[in-house]
Design a protein around this nucleic acid. Structure first.
Lengths: 185, 185
DNA sequence: TTGACCAAGCTAACGCCGTTAGCTACCGTC
DNA sequence: GACGGTAGCTAACGGCGTTAGCTTGGTCAA
């Protein structure tokens, strides 16, 4: 049922890959405001305009990071489906979803915080990454609802929107139970 | 059970109110990128630095808009609770939540898209706006889960993250059913 | 060996952004 | 009539993404 991620559309040069990975480190450690062309260039020991010899612009960099994130999330979710029993699959993919996003908050935000540049994206990647939600539920609409719940939980947790002292583990469990029992009719 | 919104902390001068309302129009009609101090000033027929005679900075403007949004959402949600029967209250507040966010997408995004500046906010406003979710559910954790579901649905819909042709009404219904039946045990 | 070409760096600059400093005109009050 | 505050102004700073155009070094064919 689960399958490998679709391959990237266009290959990057080694230097472009290096730039993207430095950009990722910058984003992950110092946050989205730190991901500027000038700071990225400084990190690489070059000047900002030189980056444009390797990447067409900041959008391309962000797209590459977005696709990395989508691929990694998809991998974790597919793995969670593969390694869980049928009646624990919903808690399993929710746990995997939360674990990835908390481990890579800035990357997660980049990947989910705006409209997708679908025209420029690797075809099928988006569907593949979301597939585990459909594998874990009995119904496509419930799958979308479950994904929405997971994303809402994660993004509100990352933004610290829950009141202090909230027991989020119990909130995740409450949601998981609601969706699991909806699946059992 | 439902109660009026807590009053704003500090009053604005008439000119500040005018600036904020022009800012809101700018944001709502032209999107977040249009909400710049220079464009706002141009809209007002003045120069950007003059805005600082009335507001301490862009953050204050965004805070004011955020509080407006929170107040309006809270009003709609409290009203939905008030005008619904006990076994239809979950669909009712979900419908109100979705209706507000689709009617004011850019304002909704501003209000929910980042960490809250709690220190500067009207005390109690945040709790008051979220209260209907607790009134609509049997359990605080389920309330948070329901809110997360609603926010996830809305933000993914606004960002057009669902596949084309998705029947979102059925997805909302699937989620509402799951939470409603979880509430009935 | 030399000339052509190209990859990959550079500087200077453009038009945005939020914001600050400092000036000025007006207007009400003692 | 002088004083002080209100509300505007211009000039400027440092940052942003990006473009134009120059230079340097290496490869490769004639």
């Amino acid at each position: 049922m689960t399958r490998p991620a679709p391959a990237r559309q266009r290959a990057f040069t080694p230097r472009a890959i290096e730039i993207i990975s430095v950009g990722r480190r910058l984003l992950e450690t110092d946050g989205p405001d730190a991901l500027t062309m000038r700071r990225l260039a400084a990190e690489l020991g070059i000047q900002a305009p030189s980056i444009y010899k390797h990447l067409p612009g900041k959008d391309a960099l962000e797209l590459a990071l977005l696709e990395d994130a989508l691929t990694e999330i998809g991998q974790d979710l597919h793995e969670a489906v593969r390694h869980s029993t049928v009646h624990r699959v919903i808690p399993a993919i929710l746990a995997a979803y939360r674990a990835y996003s908390l481990a890579h908050p800035n990357l997660y935000r980049l990947a989910t915080g705006s409209r997708l540049p679908r025209a420029a994206m690797t075809p099928g990647l988006e569907e593949w990454a979301g597939e585990p939600f459909f594998l874990a539920t009995c119904d496509p609409n419930l799958a979308q609802a479950l994904w929405s719940f997971a994303h809402g939980m994660v993004i509100l947790e990352l933004d610290q929107r829950y009141p202090d002292g909230s027991d989020l583990r119990r909130t995740w469990d409450a949601g998981a139970d609601a969706f699991a029992s909806a699946c059992r009719q």
